[in-house]
Each structure stands twice: as structure tokens, then as C-alpha cells.
Amino acid sequence: MLLAAALLLAQAAPAAPAAQTTQCKATDASLPAGLLGWVAPGDAFVPGKAVALDTIDGAALKGLPAGSKPGKAAMIGFRIESAGIYGVALDQGGWIDVLPGAEGGTALASVRHGHGPECSTIRKIVRFRLEPGIYRLYVSGLAGARVKAMLVAGE
């Protein structure tokens, strides 16, 4: 009896089922309405249009805020017409800072961080509470020669 119990305990537990993974039929094909501009690039950093920014060595980028990450960096200015929460979406890992005004200032605190939808090339979205006015977006800690970014309106 004792031997039978020991044999039962010694048996390996059944293997756990493999984690289910999402099978993507097409990357960026099923983006929600607020992110459709991700696949429709624009020239200006405005809500609903993605832009491709060239990166440079972060040490050479004028105005890069304190706390930025080492590596390549990029900057673009933008205007907000209506107060609200806006997201900044990136196609790669990186540090996102938003500063008010055309120069100087302190980086704004973010209100929420998240990832892009499954089956998308959006790596991250960081949201900020913005009032009407002029702002600057700085992204740092980048590895590539370009970064794709999009200003996302609403929650």
C-alpha cells in the first residue's frame, strides 16, 4: 500500500495546456477607429495621423529633458486645440516626454501607460492630460534610425 502511494506521488503531473496565442491574419488590419491613422501616415503630428521621425544621437538633441534615456532620440512640435487626454503611440520601445510651450519647461506627468492592440505594430501608448496650446514631443532611448509616432485623441 505504501509502495503504491509512493509510486502515485512519483508520477509526473500532467503537462499544463500550452498557452493560447493569438494568430494574426494581418498586422494592423483590425485597428480600432481611434488608431486607424496608424496606417495612414501624415506629415504633421496631429491626432489621427502617424508620422515617421528621423532619430539622432540623444546627446546632440537640443532641449532633451532631464531623465531621458540614452540612445537615439527625436523631437516634434504639435498643437492641441481641445483639452483632453491624448496618447502618444510608438512603434518601438522608448521613453516618451511631452513638454508644454515652444522651449524650456518641465516634462508633463503621464496619466496612463499601455500597449498597442494585439496584431498591431503599436508597441506602446502613453497618455497625457493636455490643455489647448503648443507642445513638444521628445522620444528617447531608441535604437533605430526612424521612429513611427502618432498622437491619439481621446481615452
Rank of each mutant, 00 (worst) to 15 (best):
I76D: 00
G87T: 01
L64S: 04
S82K: 03
A107G: 11
A73Q: 08
G101Y: 12
A66M: 07
V126F: 01
F78C: 08
V39T: 15
D43G: 13
G77P: 07
G116L: 07
L35Q: 02
G114N: 01
P41C: 13
Y135L: 00
D97H: 12
G114H: 00
G67S: 02
P65I: 09
F45N: 04
V88N: 02
Y138E: 04
G105N: 06
R129K: 09
G133M: 08
P41H: 09
P65H: 04
G101I: 12
I56V: 13
M75G: 10
G104D: 06
G37P: 14
I85C: 01
A40K: 15
S140F: 04
T55P: 01
R123H: 10
R79P: 01
C119H: 10
L36Y: 09
H115G: 00
I134E: 11
G94P: 07
A40F: 15
G114R: 00
A102P: 10
G87H: 04
F45C: 08
L130W: 08
E131Q: 12
L137C: 07
D57S: 10
A59R: 09
F45V: 13
L130Y: 11
A89N: 03
A40M: 14
A102L: 07
P100G: 02
P117M: 10
A83C: 03
D97K: 09
G77Y: 13
A66K: 04
D91I: 05
I122N: 00
P47W: 14
R79A: 07
R129H: 09
L53E: 12
A102T: 14
L108Q: 14
P65R: 08
P70H: 03
A74M: 09
G71R: 05
G94M: 02
V88I: 11
Y138A: 02
G48E: 05
